[in-house]
């Protein structure tokens, strides 16, 4: 399911990206509140998908516990805000090292002791579950009864304190997604990116080419965790409530990886496309179900499962690479 790297940026890709960005910037002027929420959710998943893709798509390390980085960051920023009145961006600065350190611990345990492949994936789930149960019983963060952020009406949007209307949150997550895109692009073209790709393709051959695979895998897990942490801060301040079950649950971790898999693992644009396809379809489904007056709590998840199944069987490289070929741009957009 790995996608070959095609060199040559091509003016076409740049033009398409420019048009897309313009459309995103203009979107809030044309959509209603409901659609705006769907767009925010899609961008949120696009952002996390890109962060996850650094580990799996670039370095070939399957993490199924990425919710732990979101949850930790969310709790760090929210706790600092509610207990000490510390602003979210400073909370974010505090959350980055926490998430990165957590990634480093998981990575160290796994990579030092030869826990690889799906066993690595299982270890990441185990850690996320460990955190979920821990937070569920930790009174400092209100345990299972949840942590709530005070919601007060603000006269104007305050980006510094992340208090404001959905349009503000939309632009915040849009900017974050764009920054993550550029970051991934730069990483992939750098020395570190090439070392990751080598490890993803064949770890033993990478080592024979002189790459210290342990070090580069550690970079992958810590960078991915650090990038993911912003999503946690955003989550906390957008939804204003945190429940361990909600943020650390296995299903959260799985939702994260669906977008990139459906869009195209290892590509730059795949995670973004996948997030929009998946969120869009899921919202349509929800709309149809609620319009028909049914109450089917697991329907969205079943739909996710079917999507994953169909894509795995029919499009092992994801939706983006064949689409990119049709559009005449590099499947890699770099």
């Amino acid at each position: 399911m790995m996608v070959p790297r095609v060199a040559g940026a091509g003016r076409r890709s740049v033009l398409l990206l420019g048009a897309l960005l313009a459309a995103f910037v203009a979107a809030p002027f044309f959509v209603n509140d409901y659609l705006l929420t769907v767009l925010i959710l899609s961008l949120y998943f696009a952002y996390i998908g890109q962060a996850w893709n650094i580990m799996m798509g670039f370095a070939g390390q399957l993490s199924l516990g990425h919710a732990i980085y979101i949850g930790l960051a969310a709790y760090v920023a929210a706790t600092l805000f509610t207990r000490l009145g510390i602003d979210p961006w400073i909370g974010f600065a505090a959350a980055i090292p926490v998430a990165a350190a957590c990634g480093a611990v998981i990575g160290f345990l796994a990579f030092r002791f030869g826990v690889a492949g799906v066993y690595f994936a299982i270890l990441t789930i185990a850690f996320a579950e460990f955190a979920r149960i821990g937070f569920d019983n930790w009174n400092l963060v209100n345990a299972s009864s949840g942590l709530f952020l005070p919601v007060t009406q603000y006269a104007h949007n305050d980006v510094w304190r992340l208090r404001g209307d959905p349009t503000m949150f939309y632009y915040v997550i849009l900017a974050a997604t764009a920054v993550a895109f550029v970051l991934c692009h730069l990483l992939l073209r750098s020395r570190i990116g090439y070392c990751w790709l080598a490890i993803r393709e064949d770890e033993e051959a990478a080592r024979a080419a002189g790459i210290d695979t342990f070090r580069y895998k550690m970079y992958a897990v810590t960078i991915s965790a650090a990038v993911t942490s912003f999503a946690g801060v955003f989550y906390a301040f957008f939804y204003n409530n945190l429940f361990p079950e909600q943020v650390f649950g296995i299903s959260r971790s799985i939702e994260i990886i669906l977008g990139p898999i459906i869009g195209g693992v290892g590509t730059l644009f795949g995670p973004i496309l996948g997030a929009f396809v998946l969120t869009g379809l899921a919202e349509t489904l929800n709309f149809v179900i609620s319009a028909s007056g049914l109450d089917l709590p697991g329907a969205t998840q079943v739909f996710y499962g079917v999507c994953l199944l169909v894509v795995m069987a029919a499009l092992p490289d994801g939706v983006w690479p064949p689409l990119a070929r049709r559009l005449g741009v590099s499947g890699d957009v770099k």
Partner: peptide, 21 residues
């Protein structure tokens, strides 16, 4: 490295003693 280009395969080896891509 199967999914990489011929050039990138060799480039990865060359990175051992060169910092710049």
């Amino acid at each position: 490295f199967p999914a990489l280009t011929v050039e990138d395969n060799v480039l990865i080896g060359a990175l051992l003693h060169r910092h710049e891509v």
